[in-house]
Design a protein around this nucleic acid. Structure first.
Lengths: 111, 111
DNA sequence: CTGTATATATCGCTTAGTGATATATACTGC
DNA sequence: GCAGTATATATCACTAAGCGATATATACAG
């Protein structure tokens, strides 16, 4: 699973959100490290929809603009849990090895 | 940075290693989740070399077979540290949100 | 003498992500 | 009044990364 996909799932884990909101939330979450292009976003959402990990929550009209909200499915939640465990585990190993080589990691924030 | 690239850097953080050894170490590290194809491996190594993150350590002859060892450069170590911090941070956020939704993560091993 | 493990390397295909573009409303600054 | 920015959707061609297949070569087990 790509970082982009992982971040979209993580954003949606907090609650349903619309496309543009997802882009902003991913930027915030990654501290501007990952800025999703709209082309990427729709690609990710399409694939996640096909895989049954996200679904359409609702559609709202906000200031004359349609907002399409997406939400995690149960399956999406499970997939995120699995991916998170795997990422935490590998990051832990990498951190251990870096520490063994005398490199201290800056305990980064993340929202 | 892709997971494949990250795992190769993590493997090399422990010490210099040859191509075939990297493939095996990545499998072990990810608990068979990521099995590098040789095509992927050489693509990753080429890109990392171009970016100055890994370099050739030495060449050995083992059982009549050449072994080409790769090692991390200082820059590679720094890049790995940065990536590890970022990954740990996002995994932490994801874990928090999953916990808030009542999902406990299996504290996976990782070598 | 066939299959498996070790070990390197290349090539074409597919897919994911990027950049550009398009459309549309609302608000802010000049 | 008009340009620029923010909000909001969507598509499309290009590029790059990863995958699968293939090739070459030695050593060892069955």
């Amino acid at each position: 699973m790509s970082e982009q996909t992982f971040l979209v799932l993580t954003v949606l884990a907090e609650g349903a959100l619309h496309g543009y909101g997802i882009v902003q939330a991913v930027s915030a979450l990654s501290e501007q490290r990952v800025v999703l292009r709209v082309g990427t976003l729709y690609g990710v959402l399409d694939r996640l929809s096909d895989d049954g990990l996200v679904g359409l929550d609702r559609e709202e009209v906000h200031n004359g603009r349609l907002r399409r909200y997406y939400r995690l499915t149960e399956e999406g939640l499970t997939a995120l849990a699995r991916e998170t465990s795997a990422r935490a585990a590998t990051a832990r190993v990498a951190a251990d090895r870096l520490r063994a080589r005398g490199i201290r990691l800056a305990p980064e924030g993340g929202v």
